[in-house]
Amino acid sequence: MKKYFLFLSLLLLSVSCIEPKAKNTDTTKKEINTFLDKWHKDAAETNFQAYFDAIAEDGIFIGTDATENWNKKEFMAFSKPYFDKGKAWNFTALERNIYFSKDKNTIWFDELLDTQMKLCRGSGVLEKIDGQLKIKHYVLSMTIPNDNSSDVISIKSAIEDKIIDDKKK
Rank of each mutant, 00 (worst) to 15 (best):
M1W: 15
K3I: 09
K3G: 05
F5N: 06
L10T: 09
L13K: 07
S16V: 09
C17Y: 15
I18W: 15
P20W: 14
K21Q: 13
A22N: 12
N24G: 05
T27F: 06
T27A: 01
N33Y: 15
N33P: 00
N33I: 08
T34K: 07
T34I: 10
F35L: 02
K38V: 05
D42G: 03
A44K: 07
E45Y: 07
A50Y: 13
A56F: 12
A56N: 10
D58K: 02
D65E: 14
E68A: 01
K73G: 03
E74H: 05
E74F: 04
Y82V: 04
D84M: 01
G86W: 14
G86A: 04
K87R: 10
K87T: 04
W89F: 06
N90P: 00
T92V: 11
L94K: 08
N97K: 08
N97Q: 13
S101D: 14
K102W: 09
D103F: 08
T106G: 00
T106M: 05
F109I: 09
D110G: 00
D110A: 00
E111Y: 11
K118P: 00
G122R: 09
G124M: 02
G131F: 09
Q132H: 09
Q132T: 04
Y138G: 00
Y138S: 05
S141I: 06
T143F: 04
S150N: 10
I155S: 08
K156D: 11
A158E: 15
I159D: 15
E160Q: 07
K162D: 12
D166Y: 01
K167F: 09
